[in-house]
């Protein structure tokens, strides 16, 4: 049913497309290298306690009051870095799987259509369900891989720069572990599924990106906006959100696995 050759071909395709490859490299560098480097490295160079001022100190106290009691014993500088690493950075980090998954999945069907190869695929004896499922898997692997690599790099940077400040390894916290093992894969799957559906209904990559931008980005932005708060409220809520996403993903997957109308896809894409 699932075609390994389509998955392999799609991944080769992604690695040989300059535009896709640049997105897969630049986005992780920004959110998993530059961000932690600037904040944790900044804490080493500048005196964050002075920079913070009294308002930020009051805000810190409120944050710290709902956290692990050990955090209260940290210096202001340590508290700023700790909060950034464990509560704000995860929000930005989620943009890595989201943007990479969007880029790869939007290209999925439309890329084939634009290069006039979709006709060859539809004229071959692969089932429509098999084609969709293979394309979904091929679109999940790169963002998942990039997220895990970014997570590791991010961890190395945080621990390397954070060690002089904390005299301990502060990464990964449970928030991060739940994020990378549950939330990130579920968000990748959701973004891929929605984008593959869009990609199979439109005719150009531009159109796919635009629709994805209109439909997906607001939802994503709304979710991300709430997530920094969610991280503060604890891993149970992140697990619940992941479970809800799992249910939504399963419903979409069941819907997709019922697709079998080759002529509908052909007429929408080729004509």
């Amino acid at each position: 049913m699932i075609s390994k050759s389509i998955i392999r071909k799609d991944i080769i395709d992604i690695t040989r497309s300059k535009t896709l490859l640049i997105t897969l490299i630049i986005i992780p560098i920004i959110f998993s290298v530059v961000f932690p480097f600037v904040i944790v490295g900044g804490a080493l160079i500048f005196d964050l306690e002075k920079v913070a001022g009294s308002d930020l100190n009051m805000m810190l106290d409120k944050f710290v009051s709902v956290m692990n009691p050990a955090v209260a014993s940290y210096s202001v500088e340590q508290q700023i870095v700790y909060i950034f690493i464990n509560y704000l950075l995860p929000t930005f980090f989620l943009l890595v799987p989201i943007i990479t998954a969007m880029t790869v999945a939007a290209n999925s069907f439309v890329g084939e259509k634009e290069r006039r190869t979709l006709e060859s695929l539809l004229l071959s004896p692969i089932s429509i369900k098999g084609l969709y499922l293979s394309k979904i898997i091929a679109s999940i692997i790169p963002p998942l891989f990039v997220s895990i690599i970014s997570f590791i790099i991010c961890g190395v940077i945080i621990n390397a720069l954070g060690y002089p400040l904390f005299q301990a390894l502060i990464f990964p916290s449970t928030n991060w572990i739940v994020l990378i093992s549950c939330l990130s894969p579920m968000i990748i799957l959701l973004v891929v599924l929605v984008n593959i559906l869009i990609s199979s209904k439109v005719k150009t990559y531009q159109e796919a990106q635009n629709i994805a931008g209109i439909i997906v980005l607001p939802i994503v932005a709304l979710t991300i906006g709430q997530i920094s708060g969610v991280f503060l409220l604890g891993i149970e809520l992140i697990l619940i959100i992941s479970a809800v996403l799992l249910i939504i993903n399963t419903i979409i997957l069941i819907k997709i696995s019922r697709f079998k109308d080759r002529s509908e896809l052909f007429e929408k894409q080729i004509f």
């Binding site: 390994k4 071909k9 080769i12 692969i126």
Partner: peptide, 16 residues
Amino acid sequence: YHQMSGEENLRFFSDL
């Protein structure tokens, strides 16, 4: 597939 070699194309379609 233009980004794949002639042999890679044939290998892909022979799998399909």
